[in-house]
Simulated assay, not measured.
Amino acid sequence: MAEPEFHHVPVLPEAVIEGLNIQPGGRYLDATAGGGGHSRLILEAEPTVSLVAVDQDAAAIAATQANLAEFGDGEAPAERQRVAYWHGNFAEFKPTGNPFSGILADLGVSSVQLDLGDRGFSFRQSAPLDMRMDPRQDLTAADIVNYWDETDLANVIYTYGEERLSRRIARKIVDQRPWQTTTDLAEAIAYCVPRSYRYGRIHPATRTFQALRIAVNRELEALETLLKAAPRWLAPGGRLVIISFHSLEDRLVKHTLKNSPELKVITKKPMVATEDEISQNPRARSAKLRVAERREAL
């Protein structure tokens, strides 16, 4: 079966543009470019803005470059270049040049990454236990489930997956090592939990897979780094827009924005998708968007 094309249907598109408060001549950072969906919206919102597109997934960067080729393909004169690209984790990004007028981060895993057969993010099809957003890094999900201590494994599943049966699941994982594929692991998890839990609203392996993905990619540590650095990257009055998809991310964003002396919170409550958008893009169902603004004077 052919792999899906890496494209990006941007969630909360109107809320993103409203939250960023696009300014003529502004410079913007899309810290999670994906296939370039949000980047395109920013560039189309105002013909004089420029943008830096960042992603740690090489396939996403390539897709973004193809999607945004009309805004400068690397061979056009410098004055016609409206977009630049950087391949890497946003936590390691070191901006140069003028401060940004706005920063966007659309967190989590994309629907394309979930569907890519060899990436191991999903148990909908059999794949190696990988889960790396950047294949250049060393740690994989297979390393965690096959070599980590049972207590450490249970703690990761409980903390990052908010899974109340973490100890039972960790014990099953350790007892039946080694693990090779996503489907084998998901099936074993499903049959080690109570029958009532097995047939609940979500698959019983969902929270464990979320936990493994977060641990492999150090997602919360990267988010903490971004939230700490972003105010220094923004010009006074510049906006920070964060889209999160689960409670761990949203709590971290909410409390960090609220407690930052450099930022003024714009959204007292998170912005969420309308029913119309959810019907068109089911991924938007769990999206929460928060906005903060860099204070004029610190």
Results as ranks from 00 to 15, higher is better:
L257N: 05
N155C: 04
V11K: 12
L12F: 06
G25H: 09
L153S: 08
P99C: 05
P13I: 06
L248F: 00
Q65D: 01
E293T: 07
R294P: 06
Y147Q: 15
A66M: 08
P236I: 07
D57M: 06
R40Q: 11
P261A: 11
F71H: 02
T64R: 02
V241P: 04
A105K: 09
L248M: 00
T181W: 00
G88E: 01
W148S: 05
P13V: 07
E44Y: 09
A186Y: 14
V174N: 08
A229T: 08
A284Q: 12
Q137I: 12
H7L: 08
S110N: 01
R164F: 12
A229L: 13
L220A: 10
E150Y: 03
Y28P: 03
E219W: 11
N259A: 15
I42G: 00
R207T: 03
G108H: 00
Q280E: 14
G26W: 10
R251H: 02
L252R: 15
L114S: 00
K264M: 09
C192R: 03
A287T: 03
F245W: 06
P236K: 07
G34N: 05
F245L: 01
D118L: 06
I243S: 10
L298I: 12
F209Q: 11
G25V: 09
N21I: 04
Y199D: 09
E92L: 13
Q113A: 09
L43M: 05
I242R: 02
R283I: 12
M1V: 08
Q81T: 06
L20S: 06
V83A: 08
A78W: 08
E3V: 07
P24D: 03
N259H: 15
L12R: 04
T151G: 04
A297S: 14
A76Y: 06
R232P: 00
R40G: 04
A76I: 08
Y199R: 15
L114N: 01
P204E: 09
D30F: 12
P128T: 04
D115Q: 14
F245C: 03
R232C: 04
G36R: 02
